[in-house]
């Protein structure tokens, strides 16, 4: 067959194509593994679509039995006196307990922290604040979880940072640990102060 005639100009590039693709994929995988270690690549992280935008319109009732004013979008429209945190939480959520001391510390430092209580019972939410302390200036109650959907919340706890113009600048899904507070949140609070 063609073995008899010597091949003229072999199209070498075609034979190199699989190697090139494999090498590119390998480089990509290596970048992912590196990113996994330094945190720049997180296969589970989902960015908020609200970044750089004002909060969606909403008005939530106050939590009965807790002496805190209710929360509405009007309270979060700029200009604000300083950066504001909005924290979605629930008494049944274990990571919320882990994050609570950090919220308390921020509140003591004078940062405005507002809360939205998500799918919770009134009694248990109140008891939670009594036991762990209350970091919130305003507290809205979102029992059906409908406002949370407007914010794009996909689990509790979840925390949003608003700048003085009332624009959402940062969203953290999961508990704010002491580490998160120092490494991620503090620099942002300074920047938007």
């Amino acid at each position: 067959m063609s073995d008899i005639t010597p091949p003229k100009r072999p199209r070498r590039w075609m034979l190199y194509a699989p190697l090139g693709l494999a090498a590119a994929a390998g480089a990509g995988f290596y970048a992912m593994l590196q990113g996994l270690q330094d945190g720049s690549y997180d296969p589970r992280g989902v960015p908020s679509v609200l970044l750089g935008k004002p909060v969606p319109d909403f008005s939530l009732p106050a939590l009965e039995g807790v002496d805190l004013p209710a929360l509405a979008a009007a309270d979060l429209r700029g200009p604000l006196p300083g950066p504001v945190l909005v924290n979605f939480w629930a008494s049944w959520c274990a990571p919320c307990i882990i994050e609570h001391p950090q919220l308390m510390r921020l509140a003591r430092e004078g940062i405005a922290v507002h809360g939205i209580n998500y799918k919770d019972r009134v009694m248990e939410a109140g008891a939670f604040l009594q036991r762990h302390g209350n970091p919130y200036r305003r507290l809205g109650r979102d029992e059906p979880g409908r406002i949370a959907i407007d914010w794009g919340v996909y689990g509790v706890p979840e925390t949003y940072l608003l700048d003085r113009q009332g624009m959402i600048r940062w969203r953290w899904a999961g508990p704010i640990t002491a580490d998160t507070l120092e490494k991620d949140l503090r620099p942002l609070l300074r920047r938007y102060a």
Binding site: M1, S2, D3, P10, R12, L15, Y16, P18, L19, A22
Partner: peptide
Amino acid sequence: AGALALFAWRAPKLGGTG
């Protein structure tokens, strides 16, 4: 990648298509 490199280098020896 090792096998594919070997492939790119040696495949022309395997002979053409009928």
